[in-house]
Amino acid sequence: MFILDCYCAVGVFCGCLLGGDMSENFDLAAVRRRKIVDLVRVRGAMGIRDLGVQFSVSEATVRRDLKALDDEGIVVRTHGGVLMNSNVRVDLPNEERKAVGAAEKRRIGQAAIEMLSDDEVVFLDAGTTAHAVAAYAHQKSRCTYVTTSLGVANQLQAQGIVNFYMIGGSYEPVNDSFAGTLAVSALRSLSFDIAFLCCSAVDVGKRSISVASEVYAQVQKEVILNTRRRFVIADASKFKPNAFMRTSQFDQITGIITNRELDEGTIAKIRDADLELVLV
Rank of each mutant, 00 (worst) to 15 (best):
L275E: 13
L225W: 00
V31H: 02
D176Q: 10
C14Q: 10
C199G: 03
K238Y: 04
R49P: 14
V31T: 08
A195I: 00
R64F: 02
F2Y: 10
S177V: 05
F178P: 05
L279Q: 04
E59H: 09
E172I: 02
T227A: 01
S200G: 05
R229W: 08
E222L: 06
D119S: 13
G81N: 10
F250K: 09
E95S: 11
V12N: 11
D176N: 11
M22Y: 15
S141G: 11
F239H: 15
I224D: 14
Q54F: 05
G47F: 11
M166Q: 04
E59C: 03
M84Q: 06
R142T: 12
R49C: 12
I3Y: 12
R33T: 07
C16W: 06
D50H: 13
K221E: 14
T61N: 08
I108C: 07
T147I: 04
D251Y: 00
I36Q: 03
G160A: 08
L92F: 01
S185C: 14
A45Q: 15
Q157R: 13
I167Y: 05
D71K: 00
D38W: 01
V62E: 12
G19W: 11
V211W: 03
A153R: 03
L225T: 05
T144F: 04
V53P: 08
M22T: 08
S177P: 09
S141A: 14
K269W: 13
Q218R: 02
F244P: 03
G168F: 08
G11N: 08
S177C: 14
A212I: 00
D263Y: 10
Q249L: 11
R33K: 00
Q54D: 13
T181V: 03
A212W: 00
D272G: 12
I233P: 05
L83E: 09
D91T: 06
A45T: 15
A102N: 13
G151D: 05
E96L: 00
S237L: 03
A9P: 13
E172C: 08
T147P: 08
Y165T: 09
A212V: 04
E261I: 04
D70P: 10
F239S: 15
E95D: 04
I36A: 07
D50A: 13
L51V: 07
E114M: 13
I209P: 03
S141K: 09
C16Y: 03
G205I: 13
Q110M: 14
A217N: 09
S56H: 12
D263H: 07
Q249Y: 06
S56W: 11
V202F: 08
S56T: 14
K140N: 05
I74F: 02
K105I: 15
I253C: 09
A217F: 03
R228N: 09
K269A: 10
G169Y: 02
V40C: 04
G15F: 05
N94G: 06
K67T: 07
V121S: 01
K105M: 15
A183W: 01
A201C: 12
D38M: 02
D27R: 01
P93N: 00
A183E: 01
K240Y: 07
A111V: 08
T266D: 06
T144P: 04
L182W: 01
L116V: 13
V219W: 06
E72P: 04
V223Y: 00
I161L: 04
